[in-house]
Design a binder for these strands. Sequence first.
RNA 1: GGCGCUAUCGUCUAAGGGUUAGGACGGAGCCCUCUCAAGGCUCAAAUACGGGUUCGAAUCCCGUUAGCGCUACCA
Length: 481
Amino acid sequence: MVRVRFAPSPTGYLHIGSARTFIFNWLFARHNKGTMILRIDDTDVERNTEESLESIFEGLRWLDLGWDEEYRQSERFHLYREAAQALLAKGCAYRDFTPADAKAADAGDGKAGWLCHPEMRALSREESDRRAAAGEPFVLRFRVPREPERTVTFRDRVYGEQSKSTADIEDFALLRSTGAPTYHHASCVDDAEMRIRHIIRGQDHLTNTFKHVLLLEALGAEMPEFAHLPLLIAPDGAKLSKRRHGPVVSVLTYRDAGFLPHAYVNFLCLLGWNPKDDREKMTREELVEAFTLEGVNRSNAVVNFTEEDPIDPKALWLNSQHIYSLPAERLAELLEPVWRRAGYEVTREKALRVTPLIQERIKTLNDAVAVADFFFVKELAPYDTAELIPQKGDGGMALRALEKALEVLADGEFTHQAVEERLRAAAAELGLKAGQMFQPIRVAVCGRKNAPPLFETLEVVGRKACLERIARAVELLKQES
RNA sequence: GGCGCUAUCGUCUAAGGGUUAGGACGGAGCCCUCUCAAGGCUCAAAUACGGGUUCGAAUCCCGUUAGCGCUACCA
């Protein structure tokens, strides 16, 4: 039975690297019909914040993948205390009465004291119990078995065989002087208790794993499999940090930028993993089907962004691909609130008619505001009348085209086929090329040169608004001459 | 400093002893076309460096360099 967990600590927003770890765990669980566990690693009371927890949940909810079980370490302190007791009783742990600041002082430069404090490690049981009973503060440390020295090994599903001498592993803390567990302790106790079979997490934990193997052994737990993931880094090679790189490190940024969650999930999957064929755009189902640990690679991946352009171009492209393959009705549903937020008056029917015209012209949901404005606004924003003048033409030509359009569009059927027929005939009659006839009309109706196909656009904008806008353009041209 | 991990186009990546080192994004160009997109085609662009092993190395080994991680009573 596959059981995996994602274990964020609520000390910040949901980082995109964490999001990817969550996604890989989720994919692995779903691919293997296993269980996905969300565990909040909130053992550091000092640093945890409620806002952070909220933003992590918000990010996770947006990703829209879900999970099966949920735990909070802050509600499980009794388990960690019991486990610590047992470890102490078995001699696998010892009390270290060194004051916190003293330890920092002499272990500072990676010199002698970093492995352990030999006096503390050697303290007799009686002495240790006596000082503890007297209320002297201590941290509980794991007694790394160093005599005789041995090599700790495990096989990582991504990085292969790993080994490290116990001579290079320090006596790490299990319990702080407050009695609260450290990350290593709580994490291992929980992984054992929750019967996590596969630990999939960031590569920053690769060397921590030697400690965890030792601890898990001491706890008498069945050894899980480990799979470490390459890290996501910034273009400057540094790890992604909010301070240095800004909001690009938070998943909520992509939601707010108008990304589709499954497109963003797709993008994150391609950072450090690939399906071994040339597929790039993949649906959630395809990802679940294709995901295996064998496809994960070992080197860190750069998220490609710059200060001017904070979104990775490939993410943008993938998003446009996912938008394009959405059924128009579904896209219209998603676009409606976007337009409404922009202050446009939008009905379901209107959204349904506009959407197909812009579907392949937007890369994000938010793009729809600027791309479709002229379908919704009462009055066009002022534009440069020079735009009305066609290629190899002049103001006079624009005027003739527009006046003819006014005449031709005033009555008759107002469907795009009928409108196209009449407009093409009109162009022929005036001796104009199609483009020369259409550009003034497009600019008059849309307020700019770049817009969706003209006839469909005219049909959706409607006869009344089209005639008004063309008449307005005629007026402007006449004023100028 | 110690220990560990990593190194293919600008970026994401494929190839895991024999390929003109493949794909994608981005860039350039062409085609299509009522504009813009979308789409199609083409081009530029990479095996960090030095040694081995081998008939043959991007691929295996060693070293160098660089980057990253751990080295907290953070996670």
